[in-house]
Design a protein around this nucleic acid. Structure first.
Lengths: 343, 343
DNA sequence: CGACCGTGTGTGAGCGCTAACATTCAAGCG
DNA sequence: CGCTTGAATGTTAGCGCTCACACACGGTCG
């Protein structure tokens, strides 16, 4: 920086001012400094800057250590939004969702001096761990947490240890899926849900239940699952006989596309026709779900919006503004795995 | 740090020594310092440390801005390996593969002061951009680049602007897939390849071609594709008539599982039975490929190993050791989409 | 027994930058 | 014409840490 100052014939402070876009620098001076920077290939040292400003310009993102579609897409979206806002993004992945692992990762980020943290693994153990950590920086949890109730979200002032929620409205997505099936004439809809220690799974279940209740439809016990197609396959095999004999469900809402995929295969192998014998809806719109057999009706989540809203909230939190929980509407994608029930 | 020193009754330098695990500190002193650190909840300022050591402890990873299975899994693997080695990982995603975008991202990382860069988007434009950037830190390109020939890899001394390659041996994976089909008795194997501006696609094509030539099989023109199931579907529809009439291929090696998925659906819709009428092999072993209809024979890439080898090379490069290109063997997963040709 | 060594610890400087204050100069005003 | 004002720049101090060196001390050796 001293070199730049010398070449431009100004003080190092003026160089700093140019770099920081301080208003009171004469245009001619600024040009000279910029010239000098260009010729010397000067690059400001971010460590020194971070040291004196106490701001690292980095936010930490923790996500799941598996290549699940939702978390991955969210990570990409958050990264893009953060970079647009001029922040660096540091990531850490976790394979296990216990508090200990989570605390270690949060420590890792605090050691790095991140200014904020985004947590993408919407697992209830993770949430508890995050709550208890009381980080000295804003923490945003991308998760549809169980709200106390519709409309009761209070704006809250972000502060130490306050965890701020941002999410795609999983409940709405599930409602859309369920109402679509009900609208086609199905008496009720079975639900093969995700692992109940994931918020998304719980919220989807709640949305499904709400839609059924609202229409006065019978609410069957949900079938417990994980996120895997293996589980979907096993459940599909179980259900197949009943479905074929007409005693089984006529419509199933699967917690995600993987579960739906397993279901589809099990039905196909058992001679159950989708959608003629049973309709299936998934959740996520993963790559390829349009080419499942048959192409899957599913729910698409607007990850880009999610990322931008998340970063917007982060910036608000930095500025100490009051923030209210953000909820983003997903969209139903109707394809060929759903139709009206027979008869 | 001064506070810690005061509480422990030592100088700030001794505290620093304890933090950096310097050998010549008496055990009793070390214990006192650690105690003081714990009671005060002291955390060393990484910006100040980076300033004086000129080391940020951060490596930058650039990856593709889509949720593709391979790049995502690689990112996760690299992150885990890096954290194990005590490095922070900063990510940036790119949606466009032109040199300009790439340069911007590399600048972004240089501004941050990363010590090394890992590039995961194995696209030839990206590679060219990386080559021309001449970064002042080691750059590892995770890509099966076109080698001059087998066995000719020279150990090279890493240095400014030298790009180091690490990859899963795509060529071997393709060879495994092709030989599997040939071994089942197919006269030859058709190839629906990925986008040719991706290294992985080119390498898979080369491996497929090599396997055919070695067995003296006819080498058909590969069918150009992208990585999408849409493309697989379109190609499948084209091929279906020929296959049904017995004039088409009896075995197809798809460039990835998405392409294979599209193929599978097109065949199913056209009444072509897989594997009875035609065998299909994919590449990647994406989540759910075991529940495609039929379950897909595919090639699994050991991403964990890839990540560790990548970081090992990075550390070697930091120490100025000579490194040689790393190639990792993938594994064939045989499922139900392949069988011997009829009669 | 003094010169020498290694171990454990303290002292001072400075990494590259920005914040705060100091200075200069020209313009505007009573 | 002296005064204030504000814009443009320079000067100084220090962010929190590590490095290089200085120093004290006990043991070993010729």
């Amino acid at each position: 920086m001293a070199d730049v100052a010398r070449l431009a014939g100004v003080s190092h402070q003026t160089v700093s001012r140019v770099l920081n876009e301080h208003p009171s620098v004469r245009d001619e001076t600024r040009a000279r400094v910029l010239d000098a920077i260009a010729t010397l290939g000067y690059r400001r040292n971010s460590a020194a800057r971070a040291l004196v400003t106490m701001r690292s310009g980095t936010i930490g993102v923790v996500t799941t250590g598996s290549a699940l579609y939702g978390p991955t897409s969210t990570l990409i979206a958050v990264e893009e939004a953060a970079r647009e806002q001029g922040y660096f993004v540091s990531v850490a992945t976790i394979r296990r969702y216990d508090g200990d692992t989570m605390h270690r990762v949060l420590e890792h980020f605090m050691d790095q001096g991140v200014e904020g943290i985004v947590v993408i693994a919407p697992h209830s153990d993770v949430a508890a761990a995050v709550d208890s950590f009381r980080a000295p920086v804003p923490v945003i949890l991308i998760a549809a947490r169980d709200h106390p109730g519709e409309g009761s979200e209070q704006p809250q002032v972000p502060g130490a240890g306050r965890v701020l929620p941002v999410a795609v409205d999983q409940r709405l997505g599930a409602r859309l899926a369920t109402e679509h099936l009900l609208g086609l004439g199905h008496a009720t809809v079975e639900h093969l849900c995700g692992p109940i220690d994931w918020f998304d799974a719980r919220e989807r279940e709640t949305g499904w239940r709400g839609a059924l209740e609202q229409r006065g439809a019978r609410v069957p016990d949900p079938i417990r699952g994980d996120w895997s197609s293996d589980r979907g396959y096993a459940v599909g095999l179980d259900l197949a006989t009943a479905v074929r004999s007409g005693a089984g469900p006529t419509a199933i809402f699967a917690g995600n596309d993987q579960l739906a995929l397993g279901l589809l295969r099990a039905f196909w192998e058992s001679g159950v026709r989708v959608p003629d014998d049973v309709s299936v809806v998934g959740f996520d719109d993963v790559a390829g779900s349009g080419h499942f057999i048959p192409p899957l009706t599913t729910v698409r989540q607007p990850f880009g919006t999610l990322g931008r809203r998340c970063m917007a909230m982060m910036v608000d939190a930095f500025q100490g503004h009051a923030v209210r929980p953000v909820s983003i509407a997903p969209e139903l994608v109707v394809r060929e795995s759903t139709t009206s029930p027979r008869g």
